[in-house]
Amino acid sequence: MRLLRRVLLPALATAGAVLYVQKVHRFRDPVRFSPDEAGVVLSPSDGAVSFVRRVDLGRIENFDPEISTLVDAPIKRQDGWLIGVVMRPLDVHYTYQPIAGTVRHIHHRAGDTEAIAAQKLLGLVLRQPTDLLESSGTANNERYSYTVQSDLGDITVTQVSLRSALQPLTFVEEGQSARAGNKASFLPNGGLILVHLPALVAPQVEVGQEVRGGETVLGRRSS
C-alpha cells in the first residue's frame, strides 16, 4: 500500500498530465479579439519575448548572419527590428496573422532539429527570460516563413523548430489577403517565432514579456 502511494500513484499522475498536455491541452483554440487599431503589428503567437534586436542594413545587432538567411525572406540591406517569441509547451499552439495585407514569399526550409540546451529549456519551462538568438538551432533548424505586404511595409514571420520537427499545419497561401488576427498555422511542437519589422515600425514589447497571439501589440508605426 505504501509503495502504491509513494511510487505508482505519482507516476500515474505524471503520465496522465503528460498525456493531457499532448492530446488535449495543446489543441485548445481560444477565441481571440484583435484590437481595432490602425498602424500596429500584432504578435503572431502566444509565448514569451526572447529577444528584441535592431537590424541595420540587413545585419542584426550583435549577431553575425544576415537577417535574410535567418528569416528566409528577400530582405537585403534593410533597417528594422527582429523580435523573437518562444511558443512553449503550455502555450496555445496556433499562430495568427500579425497585420492585414497580402501574403508573399512563402518558404518551408528543411533543416536540422538541434535541441536547445537543457539549461535554456529549463528557463523556458520556468518562464524565465531566455535569449535563443545565439542558439545555433535558430539559424540551422527547420523553418517555415511568409511575408505580409502591408501599409507599414513588409512584415515577415518565421517559425523555427526547437526540440523536434516543426510539422506546421498552415492556413496561408501565396497571394492570399491576410487579415490581422486570423489563424496562420498550427505548430504541434511549438517553436521560436521570428518577426521582422520594417524601420517604420517601433517595437512595443520587451524581453521576458508575455504576449498573446492576435491580441498583443508587438509593434506600432513610429510617429
Rank of each mutant, 00 (worst) to 15 (best):
F51M: 05
V211Y: 00
L90I: 11
Y20P: 01
L132T: 02
I83W: 01
P10H: 15
P203C: 03
R59A: 13
S50Q: 03
H93M: 04
H25G: 03
Q209E: 13
R127S: 11
F27W: 09
V71Y: 08
L200F: 08
F63C: 04
M87K: 04
A17K: 06
L82C: 03
R2Y: 13
Q128H: 10
H196G: 06
E215S: 13
P198T: 00
R53W: 03
Q22Y: 11
G219H: 01
Y146N: 11
G84D: 01
S50V: 05
A117Q: 12
L82T: 02
T102D: 10
Y20C: 07
T69M: 13
D79N: 15
G123H: 02
D72W: 11
L126A: 12
I116W: 06
L3E: 15
P89G: 05
D36I: 09
G190Y: 00
E210H: 14
V40M: 07
L121N: 08
S222Y: 05
V52I: 06
G219D: 00
G190T: 00
K76F: 14
G137D: 00
H25M: 09
Y144I: 08
L169Q: 14
P65S: 11
V160S: 07
A180D: 01
P10A: 15
V24R: 03
K120Q: 12
P129M: 03
L122K: 12
H108Y: 15
R212I: 09
L121T: 07
D46V: 05
S164Q: 11
Y144H: 12
G39Y: 03
T138L: 11
R26A: 07
L122S: 10
N140L: 14
S145A: 15
D112R: 14
P44M: 10
V40H: 04
R179P: 06
P89V: 08
L187N: 01
Q149E: 15
D131T: 02
G39H: 04
L169A: 13
V7I: 15
E66I: 09
L162Y: 02
H25V: 03
L42Y: 06
Y20D: 01
R5N: 14
G190R: 00
G58N: 09
H105N: 15
D79P: 12
R212N: 03
T102L: 11
S222C: 07
K76G: 08
Q204G: 01
L166W: 00
L3G: 13
Q167L: 15
V160F: 06
D29F: 10
G219R: 00
R26N: 02
P89W: 02
Y146G: 12
R221P: 07
V148H: 13
V31F: 08
W81N: 07
A139V: 14
D131H: 06
I193G: 06
A73K: 09
T95Y: 04
